[in-house]
């Protein structure tokens, strides 16, 4: 905090100085009652800074300063070498840790699965919008999981998906061998992502429905009159009309996937089996909370921060570009 406040303050006087010079250049009129005006003008000039100060202070002390500290810690050692600068060795350790590499690979997998996670609510919202029989019930049913906490969802689903659980029993009845949903490294990550999508797509569905309400109904009617099939209606009328909504859902789903899977992972897999469901945030928690390696955890956080920054910037650029096309 000490380091940052001077960098904010000098800007005030500097600016103020600049304006006064300009004022002085103006002819006579402003000079009458100079004392009062200049005090009032100074107050007016300072007002914006005073008004934004709380927000800036909160951002700086609670966001930026911890960020700087975290980056800083990532260059120090753990345990016996606590507090001593170790250069890049934490980052080298991360690069050499198969578990961390798995966690980054899983981030990549999440990005790849993103279109699926957006398509599901989009498709279901379309059906509701087109008034399939029972659409009112579906609207409530689809939204229902969104009100449950990830811990509750995780606990319930873990019970359902247990090796000797009800789902495998049902599969057994129709003659399909039991699947170790959460115990097989090949399926566990997909299971967790599937559950996450199921638990959160209600929100995206609502956003889609809101988007539909802005859709011009006359376009749809026109398409129908012209004899367009359902697929053609979706392809040529609904999707173009919802570009903005789809973009928004893409961004929010991405953020949700990358930042709020911890609860599910914690309850459903503990990062296992064989470390196959690790995500960076789980890795960070594990190193800091379980293995007592705060500096290594800081390094992993920094890497995660950079990844999120890159992904976020890429999305913003993408959105701007498509926005311009509109």
């Amino acid at each position: 905090m000490r380091g940052t406040s001077p960098s904010v303050r000098p800007a005030g006087p500097g600016r103020a100085g600049g304006t006064t010079t300009r004022r002085e250049g103006r002819p006579g009129a402003a000079r009458t009652g100079a004392g009062r005006t200049s005090r009032g003008a100074r107050a007016e000039r300072l007002a914006p800074y005073v008004l934004v100060a709380p927000a800036v202070l909160i951002l700086v002390t609670l966001r930026l300063w911890p960020l700087v500290l975290g980056v800083n810690y990532s260059f120090t050692g753990d345990g016996a070498s606590n507090g001593t600068p170790v250069g890049l060795s934490n980052y080298l350790e991360l690069a050499g840790d198969p578990l961390f590499r798995t966690s980054l690979r899983n981030v990549g997998l999440l990005v790849l699965l993103l279109p699926v996670a957006v398509a599901i609510p989009g498709l279901l919202a379309t059906f509701i919008y087109l008034r399939v029989p029972g659409h009112r019930v579906y609207r409530a049913v689809y939204f229902f999981p969104a009100v449950l906490s990830p811990v509750i969802v995780g606990a319930i689903v873990t019970l359902m998906l247990g090796f000797d659980g009800p789902l495998n029993a049902a599969l057994g009845m129709i003659g399909v061998g039991p699947v170790d949903w959460l115990g097989d490294p090949g399926t566990a990550m997909f299971t967790v992502v599937g559950v996450h999508v199921w638990a959160t797509f209600g929100m995206a569905l609502v956003v889609f429905l809101a988007g539909f309400s802005t859709l011009d109904a006359s376009l749809l009617d026109a398409a129908r009159v012209d004899g367009a099939s359902l697929r053609q209606v979706v392809r040529h009328v609904i999707v173009p009309g919802l570009t903005r909504t789809i973009q928004f859902v893409f961004v929010t789903t991405m953020i949700g996937m990358l930042t709020s899977m911890f609860g599910l992972l914690f309850v459903m897999t503990n990062g296992g089996p064989e470390g196959s469901t690790y995500l960076p945030e789980y890795y960070i928690w594990h190193q800091q909370g379980q293995l007592n390696r705060p500096a290594l955890a800081s390094a992993a956080s920094t890497v995660l921060f950079v990844v999120m920054l890159v992904v976020g910037l890429a999305q913003i650029t993408l959105l701007r570009r498509t926005g311009r096309l509109d």
Binding site: G3, T4, S7, L64, L67, V68, L69, V71, N72, Y73, F75, T76, D78, N82, G83, T84, P85, V86, G87, P294, A295, A297, S298
Partner: peptide
């Protein structure tokens, strides 16, 4: 860039766990 500079200047000092 100010944040970056501060981060780099401080890099490797202090400690993650208190001494």
């Amino acid at each position: 860039s100010a944040v970056m500079a501060a981060g780099l200047a401080l890099a490797g000092c202090g400690s993650a766990a208190r001494t």
